[in-house]
Structure formats: C-alpha cells, structure tokens
Amino acid sequence: MEAVKELIEVAGQNGWTIGSAESLTAGLFSATIASCPGASAVLKGGYVTYFTEMKERMLDVPALLIERFGVVSKPCARAMALNAQRLMDVDFAVSFTGNAGPSAMEGKPAGLVYCAVAKREGTVFDFRFQWDGLARNEIRARVVADMVANTLTIMKEESEWQKRQQLRPQK
C-alpha cells in the first residue's frame, strides 16, 4: 500500500492523471489505486475489457493485431495502453492482459502476463511476467503490485527529467 500512496503523491505533485486498460485484472489496478486517499485527484478511470471483443470495441485494438499476436501478447498490451491514454486523455495509462489460468490460452501458459505503460507523448514501456504455480488471484494481485511499482518508477524518472529540464540554462 505504501507504493500506491507514493504513486498518488508523485502524480498529484506533478498534476498527472492515471488511467487503466485491464483484462485479466478486471479492474483490480484501478480499485487498488482508488482504495487510497487522494486517488480522486489523479485516477481518471479505467476500461475493463475482459472479452476480446471489448478490447476491439472499447479500446480500438485492431482485430488484425489480435488475430496475428493474440490478446496475451506484448503488441496487445501496448495497443491497449496507447489507446487508453488517448481515449481517456491521461498522462499515464497502464494496461494488463494475460492468462491467469488455470489452463493454457491461445497456446500460451497460465501465468503469462503482458503489461504496458503509455505516457502522454507516446512513449510506451512494456513488461512481461511469467508466474508458475500460483492461483489466479495471486497472479492478479502480483501483477497489480508490480505494475504499481513499475509505474511509480516511470513517474519518478519523468519527474526528475522535468526538473533537470527546468534547471537548464536558456539559450
């Protein structure tokens, strides 16, 4: 919970907003952020796109991308994050797609998860996780905790970069 509080604090100090595009987590990331005081100042909302067709309809993920790579893929996670960022007009959008199990999906093993963080200017950071031997809800909780930490790291780096830019002498 400390990382969530810090994420809200860093976002708030910089005037940033956050959104999500969630599949296997089914809104757990947004619910985790919303569980902390101050969330209403930074959490704009989220999409829960559990069914493949919802990724296409709500997030404009191209059907051809899904056909070629599947929903359990880095390209799908990246498209979800980029489109959520654009559609919600947020500074950071975090996406989650994967297979929480218990069996293989699209020929991909249970526990395989792809996530991405899209920043306003279009930069995307992607992440791959593979958890073996964990129950569905353990996988979901783990990926949310890891992505809170990863998003916080990205935000801190962005904040530091912006501070350095402000300190540079003007020519």
Score class of each variant (00 low, 15 high):
residue 160 E to L: 15
residue 98 G to W: 07
residue 3 A to I: 05
residue 158 E to Q: 14
residue 142 R to W: 01
residue 100 A to G: 08
residue 87 L to P: 06
residue 154 I to Q: 11
residue 24 L to S: 05
residue 94 V to A: 07
residue 103 S to Y: 13
residue 35 S to I: 08
residue 104 A to S: 14
residue 67 E to S: 15
residue 137 N to W: 11
residue 84 A to W: 05
residue 40 S to C: 02
residue 138 E to G: 01
residue 93 A to T: 03
residue 163 K to H: 12
residue 10 V to K: 09
residue 44 K to F: 05
residue 48 V to P: 00
residue 83 N to H: 11
residue 80 M to Y: 02
residue 3 A to D: 10
residue 121 E to H: 08
residue 143 V to W: 04
residue 159 S to W: 07
residue 19 G to T: 00
residue 63 A to G: 14
residue 44 K to P: 02
residue 19 G to F: 01
residue 126 D to N: 13
residue 34 A to R: 00
residue 80 M to R: 01
residue 162 Q to M: 14
residue 81 A to W: 08
residue 92 F to W: 10
residue 171 K to R: 14
residue 126 D to A: 11
residue 63 A to E: 07
residue 109 P to H: 05
residue 107 G to C: 01
residue 125 F to G: 01
residue 51 F to T: 11
residue 66 I to A: 02
residue 90 V to Y: 09
residue 80 M to F: 04
residue 24 L to Q: 09
residue 68 R to A: 13
residue 109 P to I: 03
residue 88 M to Y: 09
residue 69 F to D: 12
residue 67 E to M: 07
residue 126 D to P: 08
residue 68 R to W: 08
residue 80 M to I: 13
residue 157 E to V: 09
residue 1 M to H: 14
residue 119 K to A: 12
residue 80 M to A: 07
residue 98 G to F: 07
residue 107 G to P: 07
residue 162 Q to S: 14
residue 149 A to L: 10
residue 76 C to A: 12
residue 81 A to F: 04
residue 64 L to T: 10
residue 71 V to Q: 12
residue 28 L to Q: 11
residue 140 R to W: 06
residue 33 I to R: 06
residue 101 G to F: 08
residue 68 R to G: 04
residue 165 Q to P: 03
residue 165 Q to H: 13
residue 92 F to M: 06
residue 66 I to N: 08
residue 49 T to A: 06
residue 112 L to P: 02
residue 140 R to V: 03
residue 138 E to P: 03
residue 107 G to V: 03
residue 145 A to M: 08
residue 81 A to I: 03
residue 73 S to L: 10
residue 157 E to Y: 08
residue 89 D to L: 10
residue 166 Q to I: 14
residue 167 L to W: 15
residue 156 K to C: 04
residue 145 A to V: 10
residue 94 V to N: 02
residue 98 G to K: 08
residue 138 E to I: 05
residue 66 I to S: 03
residue 32 T to M: 05
residue 141 A to Q: 08
residue 38 G to C: 04
residue 141 A to E: 10
residue 123 T to L: 10
residue 74 K to N: 03
residue 14 N to W: 03
residue 144 V to N: 03
residue 18 I to Q: 00
residue 35 S to M: 04
residue 65 L to V: 09
residue 117 V to W: 02
residue 101 G to I: 08
residue 51 F to D: 13
residue 140 R to M: 07
residue 62 P to R: 08
residue 83 N to V: 01
residue 48 V to M: 04
residue 5 K to M: 09
residue 71 V to G: 12
residue 139 I to Y: 07
residue 100 A to D: 04
residue 34 A to N: 05
residue 14 N to K: 06
residue 165 Q to N: 12
residue 162 Q to E: 13
